[in-house]
């Protein structure tokens, strides 16, 4: 079954493998979410005001995508190491729903508005606030998953 797999064997039987995967997960989302937040802070008119949001998006998007690949890969490893525990965790499915929403939102609505010329400020701010809210919720979901074993 899925509960017993090669990844689980390695992560559960090597002392440093699980913490290493966790550190990659945390470092990765710091970069991934942080680079998205730079665009959001611009949309909210709070930071990097001398650049346009579209430009910041263009500069940071490769880093966002690379970081997300690391986060997703390390996260999947962590999941595989304890499938049984995640399967019965009350918070984990919600984290995945919000994550799916955040990802879809990021590459559709968020990107569309950030690259829009002359987007109305109200729209920009609203879209940025929702983006930050979604990503912060994913982080909360991750921590609460760990606390509600």
């Amino acid at each position: 079954m899925l509960i017993q797999n090669a990844v689980a064997d390695t992560l559960n039987n090597t002392e440093w493998a699980f913490p290493l995967a966790e550190c990659i997960h945390i470092g990765g989302f710091a970069v991934g979410v942080g680079s998205i937040a730079l665009v959001d802070l611009r949309l909210l008119n709070l930071g990097l005001r001398q650049e346009t949001a579209a430009r910041i998006l263009r500069y940071t998007e490769p880093w966002t995508v690379i970081a997300m690949i690391f986060v997703a890969f390390s996260g999947f490893m962590l999941f595989l190491s304890q499938v049984g525990i995640y399967a019965i965790n009350p918070i984990f499915p919600w984290k995945m729903y919000v994550l799916a929403a955040a990802l879809i939102y990021n590459f559709t609505v968020h990107r569309r508005v950030a690259t829009m010329k002359d987007a109305p400020p109200v729209l920009s701010k609203f879209v940025a606030a929702i983006s930050l809210l979604l990503w912060v919720s994913v982080v909360f979901g991750g921590i609460f998953t760990g606390f509600l074993e």
Binding site: I26, G27, G34, S35, A37, L38, W63, W135, G142, F144
Partner: peptide
């Protein structure tokens, strides 16, 4: 609080990184 700590790291870490 721990979640806020990590959410803060993701906002702040991204800036340091850039």
């Amino acid at each position: 609080i721990m979640s806020s700590h990590l959410a803060g790291i993701s906002l702040f870490g991204g800036m340091v990184f850039i």
